[in-house]
Simulated scan of single mutants.
Amino acid sequence: MKKRKIPMRKDIVTGEMMPKRQLIRVVKNKENEVSLDPTGKKPGRGAYVAVDVDIAKRAKKEKTFEKAFHVQLDESFYDELIKYADHLQARQELFGNDQK
């Protein structure tokens, strides 16, 4: 059986290349709205952050997505990102890295 290629993406906070399944996609659409993309299929410019609460908190502190997307973001966006990262991190600990 042929081994499948694992898609890799760069974590915007750490600059580290990681498997796409271990990252959270954040997308900016044409109306300059920034949102989380759990499906990975929303149209727009995407950026990735690791499924790690500490890295999500670092993104909030450094305002990483504001710099990447050149928009002003509300604190609630980063709070939602941290909450979602915590949720996914707990799922990965329970079920392994295959789950999304």
Rank of each mutant, 00 (worst) to 15 (best):
M1P: 12
M1C: 09
K2P: 14
K2A: 12
K3Y: 05
R4H: 10
K5D: 12
I6G: 06
I6K: 08
I6Y: 03
I6Q: 11
P7V: 01
P7N: 06
M8D: 01
R9N: 05
R9Q: 13
K10A: 04
K10W: 00
D11R: 02
D11K: 04
D11W: 03
D11E: 07
D11F: 03
I12M: 07
V13N: 07
V13G: 06
V13W: 03
T14W: 06
T14C: 03
G15R: 05
G15A: 05
E16Y: 07
M17E: 13
M18I: 01
P19T: 00
K20M: 08
R21F: 04
Q22V: 00
L23N: 08
I24L: 12
I24W: 07
I24E: 07
R25L: 03
R25C: 03
V27L: 10
K28C: 13
K28Q: 14
E31I: 00
N32A: 13
N32K: 15
E33L: 09
V34P: 14
V34F: 10
D37G: 10
D37L: 08
P38S: 06
T39D: 15
T39C: 10
G40R: 05
G40K: 04
K41I: 02
K41M: 05
K42R: 15
P43R: 12
P43F: 03
R45E: 14
G46R: 03
G46I: 01
A47H: 10
A47M: 09
Y48C: 05
V49H: 03
A50S: 14
V51T: 10
V51Q: 12
V53G: 03
V53H: 03
V53I: 06
D54T: 04
D54W: 00
A56I: 01
A56P: 09
A56W: 04
K57I: 00
R58Y: 00
R58D: 12
R58K: 15
A59M: 05
K60A: 14
K60V: 00
E62M: 07
K63F: 03
K63D: 07
K63R: 15
T64Y: 06
T64L: 01
E66D: 09
E66Y: 05
K67D: 13
K67M: 02
A68T: 10
A68W: 06
F69A: 11
H70E: 15
H70K: 15
Q72W: 05
L73H: 11
L73P: 14
D74M: 07
E75K: 13
E75P: 15
E75R: 13
S76N: 13
S76K: 15
F77K: 12
Y78R: 08
D79Y: 02
E80S: 15
L81R: 06
L81T: 05
K83T: 11
Y84K: 12
A85I: 02
A85V: 03
D86Q: 14
H87K: 14
H87E: 14
L88S: 09
L88H: 06
Q89Y: 05
Q89T: 01
A90P: 00
A90H: 09
R91Q: 15
Q92D: 10
F95L: 13
F95T: 01
G96A: 06
G96I: 04
N97R: 04
N97F: 04
K100S: 14
K100T: 07
